[in-house]
Design a protein around this nucleic acid. Structure first.
Length: 502
RNA sequence: CGGGGUGUAGCUCAGCCUGGCUAGAGCGCGUGGUUUGGGACCACGAAGUCGCAGGUUCGAAUCCUGUCACCCCGACCA
């Protein structure tokens, strides 16, 4: 028997770690705060990348790549950003080692860099330095570039996927001729993140601006998507920033408009990272293991042929291969990214059936099919859906004729049911606080809290200090009636959403 | 940076207080056999500089000093 997964109810953080490790997604590495993303985990990321990349391209973006190293003087140019990231930057100061017998390998003091290079914590500065060379005229705009990259933020405390010192992400950096166009882009991209989260990850999100205190350093404002994890804590899952002309001014990026006047370009940036994998886990998985929504699954269907004798096994195996071929041969469609379904025929006859079932549950394969002698007598198979773990989700007697179509539909049903379940959980744990006392009681419960806030930093800070809750965002969709701040009694245009967060 | 803890086989840990023969267990791994419709079992086997350095001692995983690393709590955290 494999190591047990700690039940969620007993110790949620330990459950999360157990899932990550036992489903084979990632491991801690020898380098503090950095992780090894294993093939199974990386496959999830690749599927996320593929889906997001399609959405970006469909909205006119192209990919490019900028350097890992940023001269320290670039980072210094935008004051807010310099201040915001100063405490978490890795810095390269030398370009050579020396190997000497007896002394081993050491940094060559002769090889000190003229100017230290910062390992990018984010790429606005190096990219805007580059855009200075790309932009002369309004005809050069907009620039709609995205890059897939790794970044380093030297965090004090890390957690696999949710916060690691090095992480993988995409960062979009766009330049526009007008403020209105840049603001449209900012909104467009946060809505793309929402679409991705909800349609692919089956993870419902709130969408809206961050408060002044929570925005990205260097931004005019930050829009975000906020998801709710099963333990009732919020997770910021993607951000889109309107940067105004801050970076254009810092790097002197101007263009001539159609009237021949010089203007500074308008900027946006937006990013989502491997943190999404953490969000995916904490939205759907259960005490039996990982649960992956079919649209992001690396293996859609696992077929387990059964049998005690060679004759039984070869008959089951033949039926399994036939079904696998039918599944792979289903018409390609948008829902699965125009790729064929991935089907694994499991031939581990030396393992007990129970072990094989548990293994696919642990790894989050959305649909498992069992074909044994008893099924073949009836030309049928057993089909188990991962969103309902154990025997509850298993249906016997599914006719082999038409099984492929049945499973295709089942995968779509699972995708929808995961989203609905997550949304119901969010709705059932979302509360409205009318007074601060009420709020303090509610914050001890899982979930989001709507409450009125006077819009000041002081009130926001006080609430955080006293309750550890932060304003997650000022959602676009939701109640909008005015009221009064639960603390100061000052007028509030509309309620905002609080939660404790990752 | 403050507080606490842990370093012994791939993993989880026992042994340390009270020094002593060849350093142990479970899981995992390898080989062979019996099993197989919800995490099978038997037999045999491989595998450890006891984090590192120094000291005390006839003798150190065990005692002392130093050091490094990691984990947890806090502070910090697009």
């Amino acid at each position: 028997m494999a190591d047990k997964i700690t039940p969620r109810a007993q110790d949620y953080p330990q459950w999360y770690l157990d899932i990550v490790k036992q489903a084979g997604l990632a491991d801690n590495s020898d380098v503090r705060g950095c992780m090894v993303i294993k093939p199974t985990g990386f496959a999830l990321w690749e599927n996320m990348q593929r889906a997001l990349d399609r959405l970006f391209k469909a909205t006119g973006h192209v990919n490019a790549y900028f350097p890992l190293f940023i001269p320290i003087s670039y980072l210094a140019k935008e004051e807010e950003m310099a201040e915001g990231f100063a405490k978490e930057c890795a810095v390269v100061t030398h370009h050579r080692l020396k190997a000497e017998k007896g002394k081993g390998l050491y940094v060559d003091p002769e090889a000190k860099l003229e100017e230290p290079l910062v390992v990018r914590p984010t790429s606005e500065t190096i990219i805007w330095r580059t855009y200075k060379d790309w932009i002369q005229s309004y005809r050069d705009l907009p620039i709609l570039v995205n890059q897939w990259a790794n970044v380093v933020r030297w965090e004090m405390r890390t957690r696999l996927f949710l916060r690691t010192a090095e992480f993988l992400w995409q960062e979009g950096h766009t330049a526009h001729a007008t403020q209105a166009e840049a603001e449209e882009e900012t909104l467009r991209m946060v809505r793309i993140y929402q679409q991705f989260a909800e349609e692919f990850m089956a993870m419902p999100v709130l969408v809206g601006p961050k408060t002044e205190g929570q925005k990205f350093p260097g931004a005019i404002y930050t829009l975000c998507i906020e998801a709710l994890m099963q333990d009732g804590k919020a997770l910021q899952a993607g951000t889109s920033h309107f940067l105004g002309q801050n970076f254009a001014k810092a790097f002197d990026v101007t263009f001539q408009n159609d009237k021949g006047q010089r203007e500074y370009a308008w900027a946006t940036s937006w990013g989502a990272s491997t943190r999404l994998i953490g969000g995916l886990i904490m939205t759907h998985s259960d005490d039996n293991g990982l649960v992956v929504p079919p649209r992001l699954a690396h293996t859609h269907v696992a077929i387990c042929p059964l049998g005690k004798t060679d004759e039984e096994r070869s008959a089951s195996l033949a039926a399994a291969e036939k079904l696998a071929a039918e599944l792979r041969g289903l018409p390609r469609c948008e829902f699965f990214g125009y790729e064929p379904l991935t089907v694994k025929v499991d031939q581990a006859f030396d393992k007990s059936p129970g072990f094989r079932y548990a293994e696919y549950e642990l790894r989050g394969v959305p649909v498992r099919v069992e074909i044994g002698p008893k099924d073949l007598e009836k030309s049928a198979c057993a089909v188990a859906r991962r969103d309902r773990p154990g025997k509850d989700g298993k249906a016997f007697g599914v006719p082999l004729a038409g099984a492929a179509q049945h499973i295709d539909q089942l995968l779509r049903d699972i995708q929808a049911s995961l989203f609905n379940r997550a949304k119901e959980f969010r709705e059932s744990t979302t509360r409205t606080a009318r007074t601060y006392d009420e709020f303090k009681e509610m914050i001890e419960l899982p979930g989001f809290i709507w409450a009125h806030w006077d819009g000041t930093r002081a009130t926001e800070d006080r609430i955080q200090e006293e309750t550890k809750a932060t304003i997650r965002c000022l959602p676009y969709d939701g109640p909008s009636e005015p009221g009064t701040c639960m603390i100061s009694g000052q007028p509030s245009a509309r309620p905002v959403v609080f939660a404790r967060a990752y």
